[in-house]
Design a protein around this nucleic acid. Structure first.
Lengths: 337, 337
DNA sequence: CTGAAAGCGCTTACAG
DNA sequence: CTGAAAGCGCTTACAG
């Protein structure tokens, strides 16, 4: 392993000081002669020299890296969001550390500390919802953009989705299809804003005049293991066996489990029960019955979040506009409804 | 943004030199008095001091970071592999840069250079197959572990899967189900070793005595867009309309497209055609007909690769054993066959 | 247009 | 048990 050349080697080779090489590296070509510039270029080329980012970071206290923390990276939602973030960041010369909190608040905190120690320039966070004060504190020291999940009363830039609209879309759709009973299946909301918003909107619409004739239930699913889920679904659907019933599932992962349970119960949408899921996953159109879905603009969420953070990082001023960007959801009607 | 305390601040606070603080940080407790040690601990705690990893990296030329390059990160295979890598790395104090080459050789090269500039300690690479010499060169300067895709004649540690066995599993299974025609659908092999191996094994078994009565075709799919694929499949299946036919798809992404095409053609497995796919994706059991699958031990692949690399990094000697670990595939029979 | 010099925050022989 | 000092590879006023 031949040790890599440093700025000093290049300086010696060209016969100038390291300062000049540094200027070259930073594109300050006006402050050197054309000849010097060309000789430096040649030497760098010949030696295959690459400046050390870590040395640069140490000096400039900018590392050109961003930490991206996801509450659960293996949620299909997260994957697409990451794609958007990645695209935007690499375009602007930022590298990202992708971190998975695995739905653990403790892990989330550790990761944040680890990342500050790594010297990242900023954070994009899809939070577990359990570290609100911690993250508020972080946002005082670092540029932070929140994704999907808001933190109450914090002046933190946020990119989220219009959950009211999403639930509205789903319920109107099902109403139109003649459903007489709608059950909303959601994970326990915890401190997670989109879950809270969706549940609140669901209940609100359920209580509205327009839905007087429709029985609405919100069901928090704790356990996702197959038997419990089957039991729960069977009981729920048996309540009104004669009526046209519908299920709304709050995210892609949950949908997958619900479909498995439905299969096991030999219940086929839309005949036995209508089904609308949040998140347009890649398998949604191909499932036993292609799935009607509330699609999140996942790629755009990631893109927007990254763009915001980069604006904060590169922007002339500390752009403290702290806006919450609300992106729209859309309903894609397929065979399950 | 109050600037973070440095080792100097702690040293001043405690009234010792930075050398002593550094020793403390590196756990060299034997070389300081119990009292000093406790006072340092207290000061660090009080100030919320965190050592700067980038400064440490600069000094020690170890960054405790690993670059993970994936040819295509949005392949379901890649996701699970990453999970295994992540788990193993974080357990050993390594942070990973996840990079997506997006199937571009050029991008792959750029990423590698970028990562060396970032000062990573080693590489885990699922290569595009187009940078063999480049990666061989890299492996001379850095610890490298290859994932899934081998590089010919290179002394590089590799974690791969037993593709011969996988194809064998699939074909025997289909033979047993009474198929008279088997078509293997694969992306163009390029320089990608598992594709080459699977195609070779397929042809080899097809030519064997045991398969004399079975018509076997290997079909390289260039375009995945729906119409072209439908046409191609229709033509292939129309060849022998009277016989029991089967399809083997070479990876999860391809499977998804094939299923979509089959749906469009109103062909339902296993009635109209049997279907075995490589990769046990999360949607595989839930598809219109739960999918028979050759499952890769994806998580284990990632885990093993990371473990190998860490052994090279942390190991006392440069363990140049350069073994290729071959992991077994398994067949999960579901409703499509 | 260019260089000398200080310094970013650590680590590590060396000396005591 | 502890410190002074050099140095990792850069950048950046400052001076010319």
């Amino acid at each position: 392993m031949k040790s890599k050349p440093s700025i000093k080697d290049i300086a010696n080779m060209v016969g100038v000081s390291t300062a000049t090489i540094s200027r070259y590296l930073n594109g300050k070509y006006q402050s050197m002669s054309e000849e010097t510039r060309q000789r430096i270029a040649a030497a760098i080329e010949r030696m295959g020299y690459q400046p050390s980012n870590i040395a640069r970071s140490l000096r400039s206290t900018k590392s050109k890296t961003i930490a991206v923390l996801m509450a659960d990276i293996f949620n299909p939602y997260s994957m697409d969001v990451l794609r958007g973030i990645e695209q935007q960041c690499s375009e602007h010369g930022y590298t990202i550390f992708i971190c998975d909190a695995k739905d653990s608040a403790q892990r989330e905190r550790n990761l944040i500390e680890e990342m500050t120690a790594k010297g990242v320039d900023g954070f994009i966070i899809n939070t577990t919802g359990e570290n609100n004060n911690f993250i508020k504190g972080l946002s005082l020291d670092y540029p932070v953009v929140l994704i999907g999940r808001k933190i109450n009363g914090a002046a933190i830039n946020t990119v989220a989705v219009d959950n009211q609209q999403g639930i509205d879309l789903a319920m109107k759709h099902l109403q139109q299809k003649g459903c007489r009973a709608i059950t909303f299946l959601t994970p326990a909301p915890g401190n997670i804003s989109p879950r809270i918003e969706r549940i609140a909107t669901f209940n609100q619409i359920a209580a509205s005049e327009a839905f007087r004739e429709i029985t609405c239930h919100c069901l928090e699913m704790a356990a996702l293991e197959s038997n419990a889920l089957q039991d729960r679904l069977r009981r729920q659907l048996d309540t009104r066996p004669q009526e046209r019933q519908a299920l709304i599932t709050a995210n892609g992962k949950l949908t997958l489990h619900v479909i498995a349970a439905l299969n096991a119960l030999h219940l086929t949408p839309p005949h036995d029960v209508l089904l609308v899921g949040f998140d347009d996953t890649d398998w949604a159109p191909l499932i036993r019955q292609p799935l009607t879905v509330i699609a999140q603009p996942t790629y755009e969420i990631g893109l927007t979040a990254a763009r915001k953070l980069i604006l904060m990082l590169d922007g002339q001023k500390t752009r403290k506009e702290t806006a919450t960007t609300l992106l729209p959801l859309s309903l894609i009607a397929r065979e399950t409804t």
